[in-house]
Design a protein around this nucleic acid. Structure first.
Lengths: 160, 160
DNA sequence: TCGGTGTAGATGATGTGTCATCTACGCATC
DNA sequence: GATGCGTAGATGACACATCATCTACACCGA
């Protein structure tokens, strides 16, 4: 990523946009995290794992499937699942089709936890984020996000 | 934040926009972090601290000033500065005007580190983010970010 | 059936973020 | 000048993220 020809620095508008975005993003996720943590004892990461499991018909997923849809590092996922299992939010079951793997299953406690957490979380997303934006702004944001996601996919080496 | 009257769930467009934004944001910062780390041995957090110090005339700031402009938790800042000092990126000097405080000063090593890191970082911000967007999209993003920042400020209790 | 390569997943070390708590100084008021 | 409150900052414990590495099984071709 080194520039032989000299880096093109950000102009004023780019600078302002980029810095506003970075700060907004960081503070927003910090707030969402705090709300979830204090009101439900879940982290944003826990929440996302539970959402994926809830969206699956039988509440069972292979870790590598979770990895693909969350785009997490494998090791992060593994550690996180260990912690979630220790807290009783998920369980592990043997996978008979593939001796290497396992199934991650949503426990009753896990289902209860996300059911309890969801309303407050969605309310917070609305009040801190969506409620301040027009439909057009929301549509524009989606387009920007998807374009950037496309670039991230296009330039992904191995990971991510 | 609990809803007595029932939560208004996200409609399809809101859902798509929000999820795209969250995923984009997480993956983007992960990539930026990795680029900085592998190419310069700095984290994004290190980089931001160093930027603030570099933008100051004498390269000296009180911790609480850093806290105000970074919007970090006090404890996070304190721990981070300790680690950065251990690595020689910053130093601490006594503050004669206020016996409680200290000055954080940019060391030569710190200045070298950010000077070396900046071009690659800016290139990455461009290639993963700005280059994929039109001027209009960048302007729209800035407006959205600033509006949300306003909401975050308006609803901040103590912290953040 | 043996060896090689690829894939699923776990683990230990280390850096990072948050919470609760603690110390010490500044400052006002009695 | 003692009391009390507010602010500046550090610290220990713990959850989280990343990297390097390791095990075990799958699968394929000789």
């Amino acid at each position: 990523m080194a520039t032989m020809t000299g880096t093109q620095w950000l102009d004023d508008e780019e600078q302002r946009a980029w810095r506003a975005f970075v700060r907004m993003q960081g503070r927003l996720t910090a707030r969402l995290n705090r709300q979830l943590q204090t009101d439900s004892g879940l982290s944003l990461a826990d929440y996302e794992v539970l959402v994926q499991l809830t969206d699956t018909a039988d509440g069972r997923l292979r870790p590598f499937e979770l990895q693909r849809c969350l785009h997490w590092e494998q090791s992060r996922l593994s550690h996180h699942l260990t912690r979630m299992q220790r807290r009783g939010l998920i369980g592990r079951e043997e996978c008979t089709e593939d001796g290497r793997g396992a199934f991650i299953v949503l426990t009753d406690a896990g289902r209860d936890a996300i059911t309890a957490a969801a309303p407050g979380h969605v309310d917070t997303v609305r009040s801190l984020f969506l409620d301040g934006l027009t439909r057009d702004q929301i549509a524009a944001l989606r387009q920007v996000s998807e374009q950037v996601l496309g670039r991230l996919d296009a330039t992904a080496d191995t990971d991510d």
